[in-house]
């Protein structure tokens, strides 16, 4: 059978969801953001909640996330997305409100906002992209940077005595009674993407049941910041990030 005979509408097996816009993403080649955006968009399409979903984008590489998903968006100040989400969800309790935040945004400058939103059990979804580095500003050390990991502000590797320990936000918020579902995933293989999608679907389903905060960390790569190819980044992530940030469901109530 010729390729041209296979490429027909009735044989379609996988295509880009309509909830993604046609804008070309500004992310570097191989960036995990693109995969996570897509998975969120697919969940929104499958749940048929495009009209009722409000995204809150952060400051960081994904500051322009609003260019890529065909939904209403608010662009927050650095770290404050959970505060915007709190108000949005409280004022429009029937909407699906999610924040999309990187590790600098969520774990550093926005530590107070995320802890308190989770502790209040705001009925929102939090997507937390952890690549252990500040991408947008040029590869500086993040709270999540691993010990010994070189960045532009830890050029000799993160020194615990100088800069403290890498912060495990996900374990931290799992301890808060306001969170209902807390999980850590990745998106480097098709299998990982399928698991991630299942988790994000569950998180959005939790909003229907008004169960409180669902928090999903995605251990991610930053090829440009890590100065590796996308493929080598995935390998580095598996070898170095996964042992410290183990994947799995941490809390499901």
């Amino acid at each position: 059978m010729e390729v041209k005979d296979i490429i027909k509408e009735e044989n379609l097996a996988y295509k880009k969801t309509k909830v993604l816009t046609d804008n070309e993403m500004h992310y570097c080649p191989g960036c995990t953001h693109g995969v996570v955006h897509k998975v969120i968009a697919e969940v929104i399409e499958e749940k048929d909640i495009q009209e009722n979903t409000i995204g809150i984008s952060p400051v960081g590489c994904s500051v322009l996330a609003y260019n890529y998903l065909h939904i209403d968006w608010q662009e927050a100040a650095h770290g404050r997305a959970p505060a915007l989400a709190t108000a949005t969800s409280r004022l429009m309790p029937d909407k699906y409100v999610f924040t999309y935040q990187g590790d600098g945004d969520l774990a550093s400058i926005g530590a107070a906002e995320i802890i308190h939103a989770c502790n209040r059990g705001e009925n929102i979804v939090v997507i937390f992209i952890n690549n252990g580095i500040y991408g947008m500003t040029g590869g500086q050390m993040a709270p999540t940077t691993l010990e010994g990991m070189p960045t532009s502000t830890s050029p000799y590797g993160r020194d615990i005595k100088l800069s403290g320990h890498p912060l495990k936000m996900t374990e931290l918020v799992a301890n808060l009674p306001g969170t209902t579902f807390v999980a850590r995933h990745s998106a480097e293989t098709a299998g990982a993407v399928r698991k991630l999608k299942k988790a994000i679907r569950k998180a959005f389903d939790n909003i229907d049941e008004k169960k409180g905060t669902s928090f999903i960390e995605v251990v991610s790569t930053c090829s440009s910041g890590w100065k590796l190819t996308p493929e080598a980044s995935n390998t580095w992530m598996k070898e170095n990030m996964f042992p410290f940030y183990p994947l799995g469901i941490i809390k499901d109530e």
Partner: peptide
Amino acid sequence: NCGLVCPDSVITVYKV
């Protein structure tokens, strides 16, 4: 699988 991991959603897959 290619479509799932593509960060830029540029892949469409057909199957018979």
